[in-house]
């Protein structure tokens, strides 16, 4: 098993843990944590393919990941703001109760 495969297996496991956390948890912040894990699994894949791919241009994967981290930071800020707004609204952050925004 070469290092690339090892990296891919690791990132897949990380993604599965993040997905399970996002699906299983009722707490808004923990769901956001799960999402964060899944994004990091994807970032790991970018780095791995860049590092182990013969003839890749210098720093491509790193730049991709840095962009992704920046976007994720912005998205997390919005997500946390939503959680705070949710708390103000219903005095807790249980997603199962935040179901009134439907069509």
């Amino acid at each position: 098993m070469n290092p690339l495969q090892l990296c891919l297996v690791f990132s897949s496991l990380l993604f599965a843990v993040g997905l399970a956390g996002a699906l299983a948890r009722n707490n808004g912040i923990l769901v956001l944590l799960g999402l964060e894990l899944m994004l990091n699994a994807a970032n790991l894949n970018f780095i791995a393919f860049w590092r182990f791919h013969p003839g890749a241009a210098p720093a491509t994967g790193v730049i991709f990941v840095i962009f992704a981290i920046a976007v994720t930071a912005a998205e997390t800020a919005v997500g946390l703001a939503l959680v705070i707004a949710l708390y103000r609204h219903q005095q807790n952050i249980r997603l199962s109760e935040a179901n009134r925004l439907k069509g």
Partner: peptide, 17 residues
């Protein structure tokens, strides 16, 4: 269509998964 929109965040996540 509107019946599918339950407002349950987990439902949507589940569908995505």
């Amino acid at each position: 269509y509107s019946r599918r929109q339950t407002g349950e965040a987990h439902g949507y996540l589940r569908a995505l998964a």
